[in-house]
Amino acid sequence: MNQSIPIRTLHESLTEAEREAVEAACSHYEQRPAAAIDALMIVQQQRGWVDDERLYALAELLGMSATELEGVATFYNHIYRQPVGRHVIHLCNSISCWLQDVGALEQHLCERLSIRMGQTSQTGQITLLPNVCLGCCDKAPAMMLDGELIMDLDKDKLDSILDKLQGEGNG
């Protein structure tokens, strides 16, 4: 049941490099659908998020139905099924950060970016999302910026990070 599936409509939807990367991921597992997360991540890394067209194409490539793959994609906090900004901030909101009053930092971030948690700044530069415990509890509060952990946050540190990100657009 797991022979490779003839590739028809996929040609326009996925780049050759993406298809090859997905094939390589599939080869690691006994069954092709096991590469679902890898495949979604491959597309997301290229395009920032996973749109419907790519989801259909990946489902076909993986030999699963689009609804099944959608069920997987929407299950995870770090697979984006909606467009995000050029940079994504995930601010930890779990207990060790809460005890370091991360709420004040969240408020500060929202005010500076003029958005609420879950939104993208008007310029499309920064998306702000919550995250469960980032495992940096000894250096709380913590966040993830474009996938990298940043710890020991305070207002000054946040400001200098935001200054840098927001400066990029003009420079």
Binding site: I95, V132, C133, G135, C137
Partner: peptide
């Protein structure tokens, strides 16, 4: 998968 809040030993 270490996602238990307050746990950071495996990292």
């Amino acid at each position: 998968d270490e996602m238990e809040p307050g746990t950071f030993k495996d990292r």
